[in-house]
C-alpha cells in the first residue's frame, strides 16, 4: 500500500477583484501518493493552476481567500503562517512553472539561482557544498558542461535547457512533491517529449511525486498514473489514466476526448468542438457548471451540484447521469 503524502479536503479558492469575488476552486478533494504522477487536466480558467498554487499558498496574498484542509505529514498547511510555509516551499514541495524564460531571473547566474534555494533550507552548509549540489543537479537534469553553465545567464540557454535548469532549481533540496504547472506548454513538441522523459526518469530515481497541471490530454496519457478532470472549479471526473481514456464517464470528459484531432480524420470533416463557454465564476452557480453545454442535462442538473459518484472501482464522476437512483429502474 503506497503512502499517502498529501490529502486535500474541501479546498476552496476565491479571488477578490474590484469588489467582486471570483470563486475559482469550489470545493475539491484529492490525494497524492508517494511516487505517483497525478495529472490535473482542464481548460483555461478551470482552476487547476489555482489549485496547485494553493498547496503552497502562492496565490496572490492579499486578494485570495483559501479555505479547506491540506493535510501534509499530519498538519493542515492552510493554517500555516507565511513564515512556516517558507520552510515547506522548496524543501518539501517544489514547483516548476510554464514559461522558463520569464521564470528565471535574467540578471542572476543560473548556478547561483540553484544554490540560493539550497542555502535557504540548509543555511549551515558551506558555499562549496551548495555549489557542488547545484552542479550535480545540473548534471542530473541533462545539462552538459555543468561548470560552464553554472556561470551562465538564463538568456544564453535554449528553451529546453532553461526548463531543465528550472527543474534543477526545484529539485535542489530533494522535495517529496513536485508541482509542475504546465511545464511543457511553452516548448516545442520535440523538446516537450524530452522534458517529460526527464521528469519520468527523475521520478523513477528519487520516488518524487509529481502533480502535473496541463490542458494537453496527450501529456496526461504519456505521463500520468491517475488524473483529475477539472471543470469550472470542481472535479468532473477522477481515476486511473487507463480507465478514463478507455471509458470516460462524465459528458465533459467524453467530449474532451472526442475533440482530440485524429490523423485518420477525413480532411472534409469539421473539427470537433464543445459549443458554448464555461460559466462566469463571479456569480454563484446553483447547479452543475457543465449543464448549459451538456447534451445529457436533466432537470436536477440545473439546481443541484452533483457529488462524486464512484462508478467503477477508484473511478469517480460528478454527474447525475451516474446517480445510483437512476439505476433502480
Amino acid at each position: 500500500m503506497t503512502k499517502k503524502l498529501l490529502d486535500v479536503r474541501g479546498l476552496n479558492v476565491k479571488f477578490l477583484t474590484q469588489g467582486k469575488s471570483l470563486h475559482a476552486v469550489r470545493g475539491i478533494d484529492f490525494s497524492i501518493f508517494e511516487g505517483e504522477t497525478l495529472g490535473i487536466v482542464g481548460e483555461s480558467g478551470c482552476g487547476k493552476s489555482a489549485t496547485a498554487k494553493a498547496l503552497v499558498q502562492l496565490n496572490p496574498r492579499y486578494s485570495s481567500e483559501l479555505s479547506g484542509e491540506i493535510l501534509y505529514q499530519g498538519n493542515n498547511l492552510l493554517t500555516y503562517s507565511e513564515k512556516k510555509m517558507q520552510l515547506i516551499r522548496g524543501k518539501e514541495i517544489g514547483m516548476i512553472f510554464q514559461d522558463p524564460m520569464t521564470s528565471l531571473n535574467p540578471t542572476i547566474k543560473i548556478g547561483h539561482q540553484i544554490m540560493e534555494g539550497y542555502l535557504r533550507h540548509y543555511p549551515n552548509a558551506s558555499r562549496k557544498v551548495a555549489r557542488q549540489i547545484a552542479l550535480e543537479t545540473l548534471e542530473k537534469v541533462g545539462i552538459s558542461h555543468p561548470e560552464e553553465r553554472f556561470e551562465s545567464y538564463p538568456h544564453t540557454f535554449s528553451g529546453g535547457m532553461r526548463q531543465r535548469a528550472m527543474i534543477a532549481l526545484a529539485l535542489a533540496c530533494k522535495p517529496h512533491i513536485l508541482l509542475a504547472d504546465e511545464p511543457t506548454t511553452a516548448l516545442d513538441v520535440t523538446i516537450q517529449a524530452q522534458i517529460l522523459d526527464l521528469l519520468k526518469q527523475i521520478q523513477k530515481e528519487t520516488k518524487t511525486s509529481i502533480l502535473l497541471i496541463t490542458h494537453d490530454l496527450s501529456v496526461v496519457a504519456k505521463m500520468c498514473d491517475r488524473v483529475i478532470i477539472m471543470y469550472a472549479g470542481k472535479i468532473a471526473e477522477q481515476g486511473n489514466v487507463d480507465d478514463i481514456f478507455e471509458a470516460p464517464q462524465h459528458p465533459y470528459t467524453q467530449r474532451l476526448l472526442l475533440s482530440i484531432p485524429r490523423l485518420n480524420q477525413s480532411k472534409n470533416e469539421p473539427l470537433f468542438t464543445i459549443e458554448g463557454t464555461p460559466p462566469n465564476l463571479s456569480y454563484p452557480l446553483a447547479g452543475c457548471a457543465f449543464c448549459a453545454r451538456c447534451h445529457h442535462a436533466m432537470r436536477i442538473c440545473a439546481n443541484h451540484q452533483p457529488p462524486l459518484f464512484e462508478t467503477r472501482p477508484n473511478h469517480f464522476t460528478a454527474c447525475f447521469n451516474h446517480d445510483p437512483r437512476l439505476k433502480n429502474d
Binding site: 503552497v56 502562492l58 517558507q86 520552510l87 515547506i88 516551499r89 522548496g90 524543501k91 517544489g94 514547483m95 512553472f97 520569464t102 521564470s103 528565471l104 531571473n105 535574467p106 540560493e116 534555494g117 535557504r120 533550507h121 528550472m166 532549481l169 526545484a170
Partner: peptide
C-alpha cells in the same frame, strides 16, 4: 521569477 523565488521558500 519572483514567483519562482517564492516557490523556493525564500
Amino acid at each position: 521569477y519572483i514567483q519562482t523565488a517564492k516557490s523556493k521558500g525564500l
